[in-house]
Design a protein around this nucleic acid. Sequence first.
RNA 1: GGCCUCGUCAUCUAGUGGUUUAGGAUACAUGGUUCUCAACCAUGUCACACGGGUUCGAAUCCCGUCGAGGCCA
Length: 536
Amino acid sequence: MSDSLKIKKNQIRVRIAPSPTGYLHIGTARSALFNFLFARKHKGKFILRIEDTDQERSKPEYERDILEGLKWLGLEWDEGPIIEDRSRYRGEYGPYRQSERKKIYEKYIKKLLEEGKAYYCFCSKEELEAQKQYFISIGQPPRYSGKCRGLSKKEVEKFLREGRPAIIRFKTPSQKVVFTDIIRGRIEFDASLIGDFSIAKDITTPLYNLAVVIDDFEMKISHVIRGEDHLPNTPKQILLQKALGFPSPQWAHLPLILGPDRSKLSKRHGAVAIHEYRKEGYLPEALINMMAFLGWNPGTEREVYSLASLIKDFSLERCQKSGAIFNIKRLNWINGFYIRQRSPEKITEMCIPYLIEAGFIEEVTEKNDPQNPGSESNPQELRLFESKKRKFRIKKTQEIVDIDWITKIVAIYQERLKKLSEISELTDFFFEDKIKFNKELLRWKEMTEQEIEKSLTLLENLLSEIEDSEFTEENIKAKLMPEAEKLKDRGKLLWPFRVALTGKKASAGPFEIASILGKEKTLKRIREAKELLQSK
RNA sequence: GGCCUCGUCAUCUAGUGGUUUAGGAUACAUGGUUCUCAACCAUGUCACACGGGUUCGAAUCCCGUCGAGGCCA
């Protein structure tokens, strides 16, 4: 294509232009990711433009969500809105919100009008609707008839003075529009089927296609990388670029992200907002990894990719043409993988908000503690307060613990986590004073109640022999395993033990749980299990 | 309805005319490990939409059909 922009490597400029009429959507985030990767790969600029032409539906709340979501994902933009400081909303190439660009638009809309490439249209809604029906009835694409094309200057001025409602239409030339898409190759549209589409509401207010064309030109966008749903807009935009004397950028239309029914992923398929995934406890690197593989792959068998390694290996040429179904199970797998990769300390930090939200613990700061400043705190608590570590109060028991204790809990559940939000239901028994469960749960295989009681008594006796300070995972194991072996079936001792401590049929190992709970609580729970067994 | 795009296991995909009895990952199933769950290891089930060509040879190139989606309304 002779009219395509010749771009030097250092001139690569790409953008995403979300409209703040909704929360940051997975599809938008994926487009952002691919633009970001392309820009970083070629040492270009990644620009964020807020497309807030729809003033009625745009909300600051959505805008904030988009900006925060992109940041959280690590997709930092080089130019564009900066949330902390509204005064920096301007970049080298002008303001980055469409609503602030009236003057620029006016210049170009005037130009099109003066050169006869666009015209005012005064047709009523009813007229337009009738035309539409007519075209449909004869099996042709609905489009504008061109009725107002021939209006004289005088007539137009008169109508405008009268205050007749008007819009501005583009005089679409009858020709074939051919362009090369980086992902899809040659694509051809017949412009005569498009009709004279509307480009502006008035002299300062462009409609979508014109606004995009002007903005992209003003911001010197070299490559437009966007979803396949924009493919039908492309010929219109190319025609507008020609009419305005703008070079066309390179095009790359990404395959869509689909729901399980193969239609475009939307709310009815479930969570689509990035912040919902964040809240559920998905890690940004998991989302990035997953989104990158929706429509792209490195051509090797490698599946795990960080943002940095994606930058290294990414290329638009390796993008897929067909839509990809968003598969939550795959996300869960990769998220679990990244959770296992992180240090227990880091995961603990990330899990604490969930434990607080579940009402298990609350953070204790100097201000709200010690709980009763006048009263005597026990020595252990006092020692805790001498350290700089974060401290928490277990709400049910009022005990004060430090973050190391929480870390121990999280550490034994880290490999079981698919998403962070699961931590609370998995570890709730650590934060209860007395746990509740059905006594049937204590039974391992065909054990009789007498056998269960024997096992519990044995546990109580054996564990009592361990000193408080020696109550470690290793020591408990050393004490109990030989006895468990004697029973031939280890489960006879270990299953009731685990259930007595957790009240669950699935959990981490009983030795590690007991050591974290401590001797006193462990024995208390065994005794409580015995009581439960004896109850009717 | 018109235009455009797409079509390899359930899902994400490798594959660009012979190295392919179509490879990997997730999911699923089974087994190992194990008190349970998870993790881990091993094994297994499952795909070139269909029909014509071109060719010695096609998942790969061409044509058609069918199917799916997107956009406009």
